[in-house]
């Protein structure tokens, strides 16, 4: 039972750490399948987390915080959309700019409003998302193997985690089974085909960018209202980039995105769990190396272990009617 306990502990923190990655990677999936590359996932998440922390504290409501996160993140997406779709600017530059603007301005605003040194005030229980215990979790705990898995792994997360995992099949369905999804995928592959079919390329891409904003906002709210009790400066800590890596690793497909995020989440969980415990054969590993592990693996995986990841053909290219 010791091993089961160990497994459950690791698995549960894997799920927790994967949640924001899944939301952010799915956000990236929507814009990038529509042909707008978005390196600004990080900034949108951070902006969302900050807005959630502020509003949840003032309104003492997690839902208000979530809403604020989504609004701010969508607004940031629209800035990216305006720069890269309407003005046909460079999508990477626009995304990087958003990351920097958010990283700086949140600190300034946070300090000006709350004066707590790069954080929003700690949130009380009522202003955060609460852990949800699924029905019969305690009653079923007695069943060998399946009981504890149900009670400790499947039950006992916040609502946003369930939303993140439900978004995976939902995204798949939207992308492959709806008119919106068909057009979205088409606009990322050959906008000319979409244009000549009588559909507005610009409007399609804006809608994709808005979807991205919504999901990034939820990811941000998860960070400050569920995983933590408030916003702290730079709390995304590269998760937006890891989500991008997961997206490429998954070749821009929703279900593989989930598995890629779970893998990165697991590496993170593993690093945290074992950062001071000696490992068999290797002995004690420096903390820094453990913390770097997910990133090292990202490089290795992306460098050669996934085969050829072909991005959407029109990705990164502003649409101009050819002449």
């Amino acid at each position: 039972m010791d091993y089961l306990q160990l497994f459950l502990e690791l698995a549960q923190s894997t799920v927790r750490l994967s949640t924001p990655l899944i939301l952010a990677a799915l956000a990236g999936l929507f814009t990038e399948r529509a042909g707008v590359f978005d390196i600004g996932l990080e900034g949108k998440m951070l902006g969302g987390a900050f807005a959630a922390g502020c509003v949840a504290f003032v309104a003492q409501s997690a839902m208000a915080g979530l809403l604020a996160a989504v609004v701010v993140s969508v607004l940031l997406s629209l800035v990216h959309g305006y720069a890269s779709i309407t003005q046909r600017g460079n999508q990477i530059v626009s995304g990087v700019a958003i990351n920097f603007i958010v990283a700086g301005s949140t600190v300034i605003l946070g300090e000006a409003w709350f004066r707590q040194g790069g954080r929003t005030p700690a949130l009380s229980e009522g202003a955060r998302f609460q852990v949800i215990d699924l029905p019969f979790a305690e009653e079923l705990r007695g069943i060998p193997l399946l009981g504890p898995i149900y009670a400790d792994l499947i039950s006992g997360h916040q609502a946003l985690t369930y939303i993140a995992f439900l978004m995976v099949p939902a995204s798949w369905w939207i992308l492959y089974r709806t008119r919106f999804g068909l057009r979205l995928r088409a606009v990322g592959e050959n906008p000319g085909a979409v244009d000549t079919a009588g559909i507005s390329v610009i409007w399609m891409r804006y809608r994709a960018v808005i979807c991205c904003g919504i999901l990034c906002g939820i990811a941000g709210a998860y960070l400050s209202l569920a995983a933590n009790a408030g916003w702290t400066k730079g709390m995304t800590a590269g998760k937006g980039y890891i989500a991008l890596a997961a997206l490429i690793f998954a070749k821009w497909r929703p279900v593989p995105v989930m598995f890629a995020c779970l893998l990165f989440g697991f590496l993170d969980a593993f690093a945290i769990r074992y950062q001071s415990t000696p490992l068999p054969l290797i002995g004690k590993v420096p903390v820094q190396l453990m913390q770097a592990l997910p990133y090292i693996l990202t490089v290795i995986l992306l460098a050669g272990f996934i085969g050829k990841a072909i991005p959407p053909k029109a990705g990164g290219v502003p649409y101009v009617k050819e002449r």
Binding site: R177, R179, F180, L182, A186, N190, G192, A193, T196, A197
Partner: peptide, 30 residues
Amino acid sequence: GMVHQHFMLVENFTVLENVMLGAEESWILN
């Protein structure tokens, strides 16, 4: 209707998806 010199087709879509694109009838594809 127009058949362009450089085809306006989404290359990794099926024939059916290309034909339907823009004329899907309802918001659910099925």
